[in-house]
Design a protein around this nucleic acid. Structure first.
Lengths: 356, 356
DNA sequence: CGATTTTTGGCAAACGTTTGCTATAAATCG
DNA sequence: CGATTTATAGCAAACGTTTGCCAAAAATCG
């Protein structure tokens, strides 16, 4: 990028395509073609060009290419808010999985936001409308919309991951929240549990709606009343999982008819709930079985080891990137708008039949 | 970005500066100046331009600007490897802190790598030499170097964070690993502990070197022999913290003279060690005190709550970005090449005096 | 009020790469 | 071997913004 070609210092300046052309004795456009469209250039000429490029350590300028072609090689990810919380590595795992697949497709991943306030929404829209990004993967409900600019109206290819936005027309890659929770609830019922304590995420949150529905479905399928499940929480976001669990433990001790099984909808709330409830003298799983959601590795080292539903993050990330790249390349796959990848229940020592 | 100005569909095409100029009845260069150098444009003209820009939802094209100016608005982060592991949120916290500060400075954060293999090194160098990024923050030792291209030779402003690379000439923002571990070891000594079990990270790893040195310093300061500390592990990377802790527990039970205090150098290894050692019947902290490093929030909900050294990630991230922006703007602060921000010991129930 | 200084708008070229089009060379065909 | 077809290299313009320079308008000075 250094225009001063005479610098004899240690710094390796960024060679231009023009430099390669000069050294190889061809036109700039021939260099461009040799690198990007090799079949259009004679083999001998191509060899000369490749040698020159190697000698100069030539690296294409992505901004110039993006400007000319009208497309960048960056994909942005729109987060629900914080990048991390508690023991959950879901978001970092998402980032890792997506990044890995994007790099293989020749793209770079950029984090677009760390909040969903107006400043962040505006920033996301700048990236979208400024041509800086080629597509987006969104992990959050509601597409950004500020001052007459909306992400939906930008024409940018978008894929939703973790939550189902297929109703809004977005290709979505999700796990089977509802079904997974239904199945683990059915397992608790099979073990003999008849009273349940549900640790809720934020009310109306997609994940909470799905997971709670799974509980109710299992009860219905077993001919049991929905009144057998006590719902705790609903005010705090998943980011405050530890707090949810602490408050739930307080809630639990107030109950006169104690439930025998806890269904926590994130590992954080399960971990802090268990910690607090054990201090009241209750024993897990003798007095109370506990299951959780997310699949954080640390659950194996809890006391006792925690049963949890493990999300297939890596697979979902791959699928999301595949869908996005298809949309970018405008390969209209006549496929489903909603891709479901199943979570997996990991049963550990926190679950047992209830005391008779 | 859509060249077809006649599209009457729902899609809001990216308006160009040329469109704003036409609507405002001025030249393109005047629009550019009004937006970027307002003092150079008459107030009345500026108002016309701002109104036109607002009406059209004009968003600058960052690629065009970057190309013309010769500088992008992206900063890359070079990771030591995986983005996440165990309960540690250090890397995600780093990303969040850095991203927050960068956005305030008008930059975007891009993840450059997820590995340190040759493909990833090459990719990092492409970003550096291709003009795609304006600076780098590195969380890993050794600067990328492949095929005659080296990051050090690219002229790109670089700041190291978490590990001290000031000897290699890089501005570095670190925490006081050595001192923090020395102080916590001194506290254990003060409580009466005389035999220690050190859970090591990878041998020769910067962090392990510093932290182990802290242990030895505290012993020396108390006039105690270095032989009082048994070192366990050293083969696995911090990413495998849980495994390190499991192996350390096996190691520990083999010891004839049991140490009374454990100094673990990451929360992951402490958590898994405690889990395993408790299964052998030992009690924390009655039989064995445990301290850890990182400050993961879940430590509060361990059984018993785990004492840990909390890293000042947010503050370090801010400092690193400040240094980087200074370097980008070529503001030569006549300052130290090494910035140290202190970690903080959080004492919880995992530490007690040894049984007499 | 004329001379001088400052402000302001616009032209044109720059940034590094890509690609349509044309002319020429090379290959193929009868 | 001449006519026809195909392959290949190069010219020039495009992408969207920025900025040096110049001319003209406006402001200030004596």
């Amino acid at each position: 990028m250094n225009k001063n070609k005479d610098v004899a210092g240690e710094e390796q300046s960024g060679a231009l395509m023009a430099d390669v052309a000069r050294l190889a004795g061809v036109a700039i456009s021939t260099v461009s073609r040799a690198l990007a469209n090799p079949g259009r250039v004679n083999e001998k000429t191509r060899a000369k060009i490749n040698a020159a490029a190697r000698q100069l350590g030539y690296t294409p300028n992505a901004m110039a290419r993006g400007l000319r072609v009208g497309k960048s090689n960056i994909v942005m990810i729109i987060l629900p808010g914080s990048l991390y919380y508690g023991v959950s590595q879901i978001i970092p795992q998402v980032l890792q999985s997506i990044n890995k697949s994007l790099i293989q497709g020749g793209y770079n991943l950029m984090i677009a936001n760390l909040d969903r306030d107006e400043i962040s929404e505006r920033h996301i829209l700048d990236l979208a409308f400024g041509g800086s990004v080629r597509g987006a993967i969104i992990l959050s409900s509601k597409l950004p919309e500020v001052d007459g600019r909306s992400l939906a109206g930008s024409g940018l290819p978008i894929v939703s991951m973790l939550l189902d936005m297929s109703d809004a027309g977005l290709q979505s890659v999700v796990t089977n929240d509802r079904e997974a929770v239904r199945d683990v609830t059915a397992e608790l019922i099979r073990l003999g549990h008849r009273r349940f304590f549900y640790l809720a995420g934020p009310e109306d949150n997609y994940h909470d709606v799905e997971r709670y529905a799974g509980v109710l479905e299992a009860l219905g399928a077993a001919g049991l009343s929905e009144e057998l499940v006590h719902r705790s929480g609903g005010q705090l976001d998943y980011q405050h999982g530890f707090d949810i669990g602490v408050q739930a433990a307080d809630d639990f001790v107030q109950l006169t008819e104690k439930p025998t099984a806890v269904i926590a909808t994130s590992d954080d709330m399960a971990i802090s709930f268990v910690s607090r409830i054990q201090r009241t003298g209750l024993s897990i799983p003798d007095d109370l079985s506990v299951v959780s959601f997310d699949g954080s590795p640390v659950c194996e080292f809890s006391s006792p080891p925690l049963s949890t539903i493990e999300q297939p993050v890596e697979e979902m990330g791959r699928a999301a990137v595949d869908l996005l790249l298809d949309a970018i390349d405008q390969r209209q796959k006549a496929g489903k708008v909603r891709t479901v990848i199943r979570s997996k229940l990991i049963l550990r020592e926190s679950v047992a039949p209830p005391r008779s």
